[in-house]
Every structure is written in C-alpha cells, then in structure tokens.
Design a protein around this nucleic acid. Structure first.
Lengths: 213, 213
DNA sequence: TAGATTGTTAATCGATTAACAATC
DNA sequence: TAGATTGTTAATCGATTAACAATC
C-alpha cells in the first residue's frame, strides 16, 4: 500500500534500485523478482518488496516485476522526468569537474548556468557554457529562474552565498562546500567528500579481517 | 565502555564530530558538553554520549569534554595520524579535481601518484605531480606501495582496473566509478554522486512543506 | 558540599526480516 | 490447476532515546 511518509533509508535506496534496473535494461532483461534483485544487490527480498510497496504495487503475483516498468516508475518517483533548472555556483576545480562529469539531464536537472566571482575564471567556457559573473546573477535569473544550485564555493562564503541564492528563489542545494547549513524550508543535500575519505581511513585502520561494506 | 563492534551509523558520524570539534578549536573553545554539541549538530545528547562511549570514556563527569582532547582522540580512531599511501587512478575531470581539491594529508592519506592511460593526459602536472602512464604502475609501486586507490575511471573499466590494483597489493578503494564492486577482504568506499543528486531531485519533487534533511 | 554532566542501563522506537495468505 | 511470487501483516532486531546512579 502507498505510504505517505517514506523513510530516509528507503529514499536513499531508490537511486540504487534505479541503477540496477538500468543495468538489467542494458542487458535486455525484461523481468526480474525481488529474490533475484536481492542476491544481486545484497539486500533481502523482503526489504525490496517493502521498499517498493511504500509507493504502491509495481509487481505481479506469480510473475515478478517488469524491469522497464519498474525502472520508469522509480524514475517518476525520483522526479527525473520533470527537469528542474540548476546552476553551478563556484567554478573552481570541483565545480567545473562536476559541470563536465555529471549528466544532469539524467538526474532530473537542466544545467542553465555556471557562475564564479574570479575574473580569471569568468568568461571561460566549460562544456560549451560560459562562466558568468556572479554579481550579474540577479539579472541572469530573470529568464530561467533555477530551483536548485550546486554550491561549490569555499566554506567561508558558503552560507552568505546560499542566502543570496535563496533570496532569488532557490529552494535546494547540492552542497559541496563542507559547511553544514540548515535553513527551514530549504533542501540541502550535503556531500562531504572529506567525511567519506575519513570513513575509509577508519575502516582500513580498524579492520578486523572479515566485514565488508 | 569500549565496544569491539561499532555500528556503521556510529562510524559515519565520527567525521562529523571531528569537523564540529575542529570548528570549536578554531574558535578557541576549550570545553564542550554532550548537550551543547547536540543542539549544534541536531542530535540528542544521549546519542552523542553513546557514540563516544563505543570507544571509551573521553569526558569527565560534572565537566564535559575537553575539545582538543576529544578532537584528537577521534582523529586517532579515524586513523588520521598514520598516513596511508594513496594513488589516483584516472586523471580525468573528476580525478584531477580531487587531486587539487582534497586535502589528503588531513584525512589520513599521503598522495603518492596519479595515473592515467590517455597519452594526452600522461605527463601533465596536477598540483605539481606528474600524471604517470598506468601501464608503468607495477614498476611505480615498487618504491611506495599504496594501500589505497582513488578509482576515477569510467565504469566500463572499473572492475578490471580494481582487480589489477588489488593484485599489486591495494586493500581499499575510494570509488567514484559508479560501478558497485564487492571483493572479499577489500574495502570499497563508493561515492555515488548521481545517487546523491537524484535524492535531491526526489525531495524537491515530493516535498510536503515541513521536513528538512 | 552542591551542581553539573558523564557513563551506562533500561525503555522505546523504527527499520529490517520472516511468514503467509492472496493471486497471477 | 499447480507453481511462483507478490503484497502485507506480524515478529525480530538494532539503533535511538530516556533515565539515573556515579562522580568530578
């Protein structure tokens, strides 16, 4: 049955399901089952069925799941179909690497601008898109107001930059700045690459033979 | 009391504690308490005390925690003090951005090499370090065998590249390749930037007024 | 000493797993 | 129909929260 409140762990697993189903599609596999997925993904079949049933039943008893249908449904749930405008703010190493590396279109976003404050960077082209002066951002937002911004500025200016963008209507941030900002009503997806690396350090340092993950 | 098996959620919070304590140190704050940290970090005081006590008691009843001592203890737990050699394999957009952007030294690692297969990239300098030919990797590993590799190669070659590196002694991967690889005894810290972005898409698409995170 | 705050045990909550009836 | 596999309810497990005695 469809749930109205879906828990964070379930939401975090959705993109993973989506990837595995994409892979099955690439391999022209038409049907799958919770038990098949469970062995492939290292989850329990029960959990998979529970997860899917947070959003309604996509399967057929006795048969399993139609791969493409399930894939597309999860895409819809994730909101990948209605493209949300997104801009990159901060075109340093990380910002420009993300501009080139991430397929925003496949992830539910439409990249409409890249901004920086550094005169050495402004005017450069990244993936055919010119880096614009951040001080002109108000003007640029008139035409294509974005819902979301990638925040790849130094931590020291992260909060003030976020506030400026919120004032212009931005509702969500993909935040790489290493600052933890929380503002009511605004969505922050904080990516802490340093934390991830330290977690790896922990595991390598404290390994006890066995355990994976 | 010191626990011998520490759960994943606890481990993932350690870098976060470490960051908040670093911040307190920057602000010359000498002592803190679980309740003070809890309001700052959005956790419960109880959880914080539970977390710290997985590793033994670092506080003093009636006083709280000495910021620097706690910070340094967590650093030791994370293994940040004994630097582990790390190489970057794949010097494309993301690999080279990470080389420039990440302070490996502060995260428990010592960057000793950057490799690629592309003749257009080999020989370039990134942060003063020359990109070496991946086919010479066996030779390069003689001197400074690394424990860990950053895997920033395309998904299609990720698995075979990982296997080559494991054969040369690599025990852990910071894996950006978007391939989910599991090999017994080897540590994979998988960073799925696309998943992170899709999670943001989900939340923006399905927002119900209230809820943050 | 009195006040504060830890370390730790016990209670609660939520997520995962198991079981099974429904049904294709 | 028989076999398979879902959707869903119930049981279990583990993580979080609450409570409080220990003690600085």
């Amino acid at each position: 049955m469809k749930k109205d409140k879906v828990s964070i762990p379930v939401v975090r697993r959705l993109p993973r399901y989506y990837r595995y189903l994409s892979e099955l599609m690439r391999n022209q596999i038409l049907k799958t089952s919770s038990s098949e997925l469970s062995t492939k993904m290292g989850l329990t079949a029960s959990q998979i069925r529970q997860d899917f049933n947070c959003f309604g039943g996509f399967g057929q008893q006795g048969y399993g799941y139609n791969v493409e249908l399930l894939h597309d449904e999860i895409g819809v749930i994730l909101g990948l179909n209605d493209l949300k405008n997104i801009v990159i703010v901060g075109a340093g190493n990380l910002g420009s690497a993300l501009a080139k590396h991430i397929d925003f279109g496949k992830r539910g976003f439409n990249l409409t601008g890249i901004f920086d404050v550094d005169p050495n960077i402004i005017g450069k082209k990244i993936n055919g898109m010119e880096v614009k002066d951040f001080s002109l951002i108000t003007e640029c937002f008139r035409r294509n107001p974005p819902n979301v911004a990638v925040l790849t500025v130094p931590r020291s200016v992260a909060k003030q930059t976020a506030e400026q963008l919120i004032a212009l209507g931005v509702k969500g941030f993909w935040n790489f700045s290493n600052a933890e900002i929380t503002i009511p009503g605004i969505y922050f997806e904080n990516v802490h690459l340093g934390d991830s690396l330290m977690t790896l350090s922990y595991r390598i340092t404290n390994h006890k033979e066995d355990e994976i993950i």
